[in-house]
Structure formats: C-alpha cells, structure tokens
Design a protein around this nucleic acid. Structure first.
Lengths: 343, 343
DNA sequence: AACGATAACTTTACCGGTTAAGTTATGAGT
DNA sequence: ACTCATAACTTAACCGGTAAAGTTATCGTT
C-alpha cells in the first residue's frame, strides 16, 4: 500500500555510473565536482523525483535546523497569533518548526519535550501549561546546553530566557485608565496565584489602586483559573460578597466572557451597571457586544521576539537568561456612565 | 555552546559491558533479553538521561509514526479549531504531527510538501492555499502511494480523499433561513470562482433563491476573495450598483466583517438596514455586535474525520479517493426587522 | 552420553546521508 | 624528464538506531 520506495543518492549514482558521494557533493555544489557532472546529477535527480532524506541527513550532520515549539493550546487568539509569528520568523532563518500542543497538561508537556529532544531539535520554544510545577525536564534541557526560551507562560525560577507581556505595566494601565477617570470601586478576578501572570497582574491592579488612593475592600479580589467558568464563578462570588463594583478587571479574556455571562444571568448590563476590562482581547473584541475594554497583548511581537532570542542562543551569539517584557496597549471599549459626556 | 553530546545506546552498552543491540532490545522489551538485564538497562538509561534518537530510529525502521499537516494559516478560528482536533486525534494513535503554514502561498506550500516528504512522514493532511492551481506535487505524492487527505480547502480534481463542510447544504440553509421568512432581496458576496468553496457556496445560494422563487438581479452577486478587504469592496460594489439588499450572504466570516465596516461607513445599521449571514463564524460570534448570523462549520469534526481517514489509509484499511461532506448548522443572530414580532 | 531446543546474548549488515582520507590523471613549473 | 599541485572522483568510516543471522551455555530428552 505504501508505494514504491523512494529514490536515494545511490539510485542516482548507479544510473550515472559514479559514486553516491559524488552525487551528494554535486547536489550540494561542492567544489570537488565538475560543472558537467554537477549538471548531469541535478538533472537526473530532478527527473527521478529525488527528495533527500531528512533523517539520514540530520543523523550525520550535527544541526537539524529545527526548533521545537510547545504551547498549551492553539485555538486561542493569543496563541494562534504568536504561533503564526513564530513560524514566520523561523522561516526567515530557514528553520523548521515542530509544534506540539500540551493541552494544559503537565505530563503531556513533559512527554512532548522528550519527543522533541529525541528529534534533536536545535532549540526549544515553550509556553507552559497552566498547572506545570515540576521544572526538572527544563533543568535537564538547560544543563544539556540546549537553547530554551519561554514565552508568555514563563516559569517562576530565575535563570531561564523569557519573553512575556509586561503584566505589571498592562494591569496597571488597565486599572489606571478607569481610576484616573473617577472610578473607585474596581474589583479583580485574578488567576492562580502560583503563576507569574496571576501574581504580576494582581500586583499591577493593587499598585494602580494604591497610586490613585483607592482602597481594596476584602472580597474585591477573587483568585481562580483562567477560563470562562472561572470568570463566571468569580463574578458570582464578588456579587454575593460585596455587590457589583463599578469596574471589573479580569486576568484573561475568557474570564471576562464568563463574567459577561454571569452579568446576563444577574440581569445586569455591561457596561451600564459595570464595566469590564480584561487582560488580553480577541481578534473580534472591537465588534463584540457587550463591549468590554482590554489590554491588547503584543502576541506577534512576543512570538517573533522569542524566536529571535532563541536563534541568537542557538547560534551562540547571546547567552541565555535574558528576560524581555513587551508592553501591552489599552484598548478602551465605547465609553459609558461617567464618561458619557466625553463621548 | 551546544552542550555535552547526548547519551547513545552504545554509552549504556559500554557502561554495562554488553552490546548495544542488547540494550536496544532491552529498552523495547524484546523477549531475547532476561528480566534482570532489562531492569539494569532501563535503570541506567534513566539515570544517564538517555533519549532515543528519532532520526536514527526512523532511518532504520520504515514507519515514522508522523503525519505532515499543511494549512494556509492558523490565526483563524476555523483552522485553529481544526488543527487542535487533528493533534488530539493523531495523539490517540500515537502519531506525531508536523505542522507547516503556507500563508496562502502556492510556492511555499509546494516547498513545505517537499520538506515533509523529506521527513518521510507516513501521510499528509492538507488544506490548500487560496491560489493553488498546480497540482503536480500532489499527483506525485499520490502516485508514490503516500496517503494524502485534503480537508476544508480541497482540490477540484477528482480522485483525492477529501473532508469538507457541505458547502452547498450550508449555503442553501443560510439563504433558505431568510428566504423562508419572507426576505426576498438577498445578495451574495462570493469567493474566487476557481475554488470549490467559492463555487459550491454560490451554488447553494442560487439554489435556495430559485427554490423560493426569488430572482437574482444582476449585481446581486459579487465575486472576489475571502478576506475582510474583499467584503468591504464587495458590499460597496453592490451598494453602488443596486443599493442595499435586505440580507447579505457572505462566503466567509472575514468577508462579513468587511461588509460590517462598509455598512458603518455608509452610515447604515446591521441588522436594521440589512442583515448579514456568513458562511463560518468565530468563537465570539455570539458576543459580537452588530450581531450577524452564520453557518457554523464543524471545524473539529472535519479535523478529526480527516485524521481518521488518513490513518485508515496509512494502515491500509481503506482505499483513497473517499469524499466526506459534514453538515454545517445555522446559527441565527438576534431577530430584527421582519422577525421582530416573533422575538 | 549424545542431541536438539531454548534462553540470552553478540556480530554483521543496513537505513541514507556526510565527512575524512585516499587515488589517479593532467598540467604547470623548473 | 621529473616533481608537485590540483581537479575530480572513489573508498572507508561514521551518525545511532533496527533486523537478521550467528554463538554459547544450559537443560530436558531418550
């Protein structure tokens, strides 16, 4: 069923009555080979439909020109964008990408890293699963001297190369935007406190509140996950405990969607009864109803910056351990309430 | 910079004073090896951090347990979903996926197919770029007996295995939904007529109009691409020629977004002045404003069906050339205009 | 006690390339 | 005429595995 066997260097060599090494060299434009032979070889290679064997080539060569990429999911605006940028940036340097999807599962993530190592990738680009705690695999990778760059979901441990959104700046900006416009009751549905984004975004929230002299009543911060469900439960909890705030700052976009659903169930309106700002939006956020504001994460920039950083480490041009934070931008939804007059 | 060299079978063999073949067999639980040796081998392999070399393994074995996947883009709801399903389905059968992104470019697509062939993938899953005309590469692949399944963006030529949305049914349903509710002036912004989706969706549109006895005035159908820009230009053209229809059926979701933008510029309202139905939506369509209706494409189903079909062909259980069309479902936006009373 | 079967390895060969180390004919230099 | 460099190949060796074909020591038979 699996068809004729593929053409090899040897097939070409036999047909032309020369050695397979000569063929190999001819195809790679090695100076050892005469122009005449080179042409003959290339011509017959073409006509026989020769396709070099990636495995064989990389088994003898030391580099594979391949990068391993591990992400928690892809059907998510941020990741889809970042991945696309990574592919494009890698292509510019003639690197292949091998993408695996951990589906937010720590053990699957670990298996996939192993697989990528077995493929002898020249470097790894990783965005951690939500619940990843054990960093042994990555320590191994690092100790082995294999270039490794994390992006967006980066580890706690220092020493790794990372590229992320500036969570503190973004969260601060989101909250400050409203605080500076007279809103005082601003609540926050945060992520897991054991993740860096969870903590840093909460930090930015607290910092902005503090800076504008607003205190944070207990019950104004709810911690949880990053999903729609967490947003739904989060808002319900806030509502139960302290009623509706004026503004809700959510740790992710799905969390905001969950909050929207909760609002709908409560018979309340967004943005009239409460405004929502989320960290991260979607491609269609500006078409969305109800309109929510969001911090736009520089997904493509993060993807390409991480890739460039990795390539620099692969080529030995830079040492690992660098940490880059790229700024997000506030995208306000249509103004309402206190801002109505300014619209 | 690139770290210590990796551990090989031989390293383990030397350390234990046995042959590398024994080690290889031990790791694969070959009956030749005694339980004692097997344990010793596995233990030292573990402690040395041995990771088998994928290249070497697949060079000697005939199967790579790897599938090549080529898509035009990934930062698009449909593809992100389909890809995710493909990864999940492949994983169930222990297959790896190597994904490449053609970025809607025919020659890049061709190069990527070559790369995947050089990686000796066991099969190919392809969604064609918009402008792909030359099918020679695929003919070669097929002639070589390498399993190949197209999904969503499938070729014109018969004989290939394909999985798509039932474009005719979906388009028909979208238009019929409105036609059956009394709307008569229904226009269509279509895709390129040389693509199957362009033609089939237009066919469904025509068929529904015909079935409900509505004629299609000239100027009601505009052909173009599948992008936002095409939607913008398309609606502008329709408006110039024949004014605003009651309903607009667009060939894709981005085209609908472009039409929305055009409507905004014209100072018209969606859905009050004109309703929009698109073929395909986005994850957030239901939160979107202005609300448009859409045919929901079974992205995940298409992805997993295509993968299963490919696996069946790889394992020789089925012959190639099958064609599966999965039905889409109409997701109406909030009712307006003629339907207001029924809300 | 000689014999075939079996367990548990080892040796050899090969997958399809690449690199390093020969080999040979030709032409230049002196 | 003789040496030497060079062009254009060829042969050998290796990358890290797997598969097939030996090799022994041990053991149950008859």
């Amino acid at each position: 069923m699996s068809g004729q066997k593929r053409i090899t260097l040897n097939d070409i060599a036999v047909r032309l009555g020369i050695s397979k090494v000569a063929v190999s060299k001819a195809l790679r434009d090695h100076p050892d080979i005469s122009a005449a032979t080179r042409t003959r070889v290339k011509k017959t290679a073409e006509s026989l439909g020769y396709v070099p064997n990636y495995m064989a080539r990389n088994l003898s060569a030391r580099k594979t020109l391949t990068i391993g990429l591990v992400v928690p999911k892809i059907a998510h605006h941020f990741f889809a964008q970042a991945i696309e940028a990574i592919y494009e940036t890698a292509e510019e340097s003639d690197y292949e990408i091998i993408l695996t999807v951990s589906r937010e599962d720590e053990s699957r993530e670990r298996r996939q890293i192993k697989t990528l190592l077995s493929m002898r990738v020249d470097g790894l680009l990783v965005s951690l699963a939500q619940n990843t705690r054990r960093m042994e695999v990555f320590k191994e990778v690092r100790d082995h001297g294999l270039p490794l760059v994390f992006f967006d979901r980066v580890p706690e441990d220092p020493g790794y190369s990372c590229v992320t959104t500036d969570d503190r700046q973004g969260a601060f900006e989101a909250v400050a935007w409203f605080a500076s416009r007279g809103y005082r009751k601003i609540a926050h549905i945060g992520g897991f406190p054991h993740t860096s984004i969870g903590r840093k975004r909460a930090w930015g929230y607290r910092r902005a509140m503090e800076q504008f002299g607003h205190d944070i009543p207990s019950g104004f911060i709810v911690e949880g996950g990053f999903s729609e469900e967490d947003g739904y439960r989060g808002l319900m909890k806030i509502y139960d405990r302290v009623g509706l705030p004026e503004v809700l700052f959510t740790v992710t976009f799905p969390v905001a969607l969950g909050a929207v659903r909760a609002m709908r169930e409560l018979g309340k309106s967004v943005p009239d009864d409460m405004q929502i700002v989320s960290f991260g939006g979607s491609a269609y956020s500006r078409y969305m109803k109800p309109a929510i504001s969001y911090i736009d994460q520089p997904a493509r920039e993060i993807g390409s910056a991480a890739t460039r950083m990795l390539l620099e480490e692969i080529e030995g041009r830079k040492k690992s351990g660098r940490f880059i934070e790229l700024p997000g931008t506030m995208v306000p939804g249509p103004a309402t309430g206190k801002d109505l007059e300014s619209e």
